[in-house]
Design a binder for these strands. Structure first.
Lengths: 176, 176
DNA sequence: ATCCCTATGGTCTGTTTCGGATGGTGCCGA
DNA sequence: TCGGCACCATCCGAAACAGACCATAGGGAT
């Protein structure tokens, strides 16, 4: 067999199918949008193409809805479930890039004046605070599952970032 | 004119050329690796191909070294500088995705046991702490420039993430 | 001087991602 | 019954990506 490599998108699909049962790509898209999509946006087109790819590899299988639109419904196979468990069981130690366009601008902030840096900092601070409020409104009690607990990192990140940009705004870096 | 769109990579190149003066792709690669590369890794191949693309758009210009390897040396043009200033002057309010594979695994943590979640949390915590130490060792005093101040967000992120994973490890989420 | 070795420096390619443009289609209300 | 819209799906060009692979200058050993 070819060295078929599973991408994060693949595991996303596998995980969703394992959690929510058989789904259409559209349902995947919905589920993703209101959960994991907050910290990892997947283009919806991939949620259509990826299951197709994975069908060929035997990780999922495809059926058709009976009536109506006769949409494709994908479900995870035993092979897929094994691949998912395998992945979930390996504790990744890899770290993501921050890849923040705002931070990239700050990095080149010495090329423009302090006013521009300040405007950037204010805008970023506002955006992070807004997002923070959104996150804080999502759940009321303490997290009820591993899935819900992920919001904790979102909140921590937004708080940290808001504080960082606030400090930049207050105390603009200047080459002496 | 065609709608030539500048990507973050383009601005990276422009910014580096504006900051450091005319450079070869190899020098760009070096400069990036030891600075902005910590939070945004650019494949080195792009630092070769992107300036070529940009030359065609008139944003940079290319010369050749006299002796030795006769490497390509790129420098920013007035047009390029204007584009860069324009970009730097617009305060982006956009937020990046976190895109953390570990967090994605946590999101599906309900599909495996608490032991696996715990192992993940421990590994992630360790990785973030290690990275934190690296960052803290980079500069001694307070930041001397906008560029240096970016490390602040790196440190804040690593601290927040390490704390988050520590809390997951201590208090593993369990569906009741 | 020559030749080899290795740091340094550069190119190329197949795959995946991205994100939006575009194109169907079932269903409900008038 | 028919028109419109929300729902659903596919496609495509342009980049990003990772990394394999190649080239060469210049120093050191002989």
């Amino acid at each position: 067999m070819s060295t078929y490599s599973l991408t994060p998108t693949s595991y996303l699909v596998l995980g969703c199918l394992a959690s929510a049962g058989p789904s259409t790509p559209y349902e995947l898209k919905q589920a993703v949008a209101e959960s994991v999509g907050y910290f990892w946006s997947f283009p919806h087109s991939q949620l259509y193409s990826e299951p197709a790819r994975m069908t060929a590899a035997g990780l999922v299988q495809e059926e058709r809805e009976e009536g109506g639109r006769r949409r494709r419904v994908f479900s995870i196979t035993a092979v897929g479930r094994a691949a998912l468990d395998d992945w979930l069981t390996q504790p990744t130690a890899g770290l993501p890039d921050i890849r923040d366009v705002g931070l990239l601008k700050l990095f080149f902030g010495d090329l423009v004046g302090p006013d521009e840096v300040n405007a950037l900092a204010v805008a970023q601070r506002g955006a992070h605070e807004e997002r923070l409020k959104l996150y804080e409104g999502l759940f009321s009690g303490p997290p009820q599952s591993a899935a819900e607990s992920t919001i904790g990192l979102g909140i921590a990140w937004e708080r940290a970032a808001a504080a960082f940009w606030a400090s930049i705004a207050e105390n603009p870096p200047k080459p002496t």
